[in-house]
Amino acid sequence: MRADLAIISDWIEPHSRVLDLGCGDGTLLAHLQSARDVRGYGLEIDQEKILACIRAGVCVIHADLEAGLRDFADQSFDYVIMTQTLQAVQHTERLLEEMLRVGREGIVTFPNFGHWRCRLQLGGSGTMPVVKALPHAWYNTPNIHLFTIHDFEELCQRKRIEIRHRTVVDTNHRGSPQLRLLPNLLAELALYRLRQHP
């Protein structure tokens, strides 16, 4: 399983109710169902991935995240999770609001565009970075909103979103003391637990 999914799994209380936005092939939910006994739904738009979810025994709902989460009531889930999806949506800010409206806690992971490799490629060769966490070329990438850890935390502050916890990992998906000192430079992936202040 992807390292970020393993970390998230440790954060989830057993028997909770989970909504996974952009759930892909259902790996995380299938794992949470068996390891944490959660009840959950995944939202997905890609037909092949929907079929993979059905085969994995995951409840998947065909949905376009860009349209928001209007079919879901306020605070109706313990966790709303979005793993490496926020950078790929058009209405980033609105989706963040929506996830914290529907979920008592939001879990967000994203590739950190402030990572030194990204900076080196953009600053050094003057080209858009192509790195492990962001492997696409600028002209065919699904990742249309690239942002750094600083950018994200600034947005959270502006929107009165409480950062309950942050974990950052390097390219090998491990943490280290240096990483904690210079997360925006050394972290490849950032994982957050969020809550909306009233």
Binding site: R39, Y41, C53, I61
Partner: peptide, 17 residues
Amino acid sequence: REIVQALVAADRAVTYG
């Protein structure tokens, strides 16, 4: 989607295509 929404609100297992 009205049916799906009601099932989700009722905490029942539903897959929607």
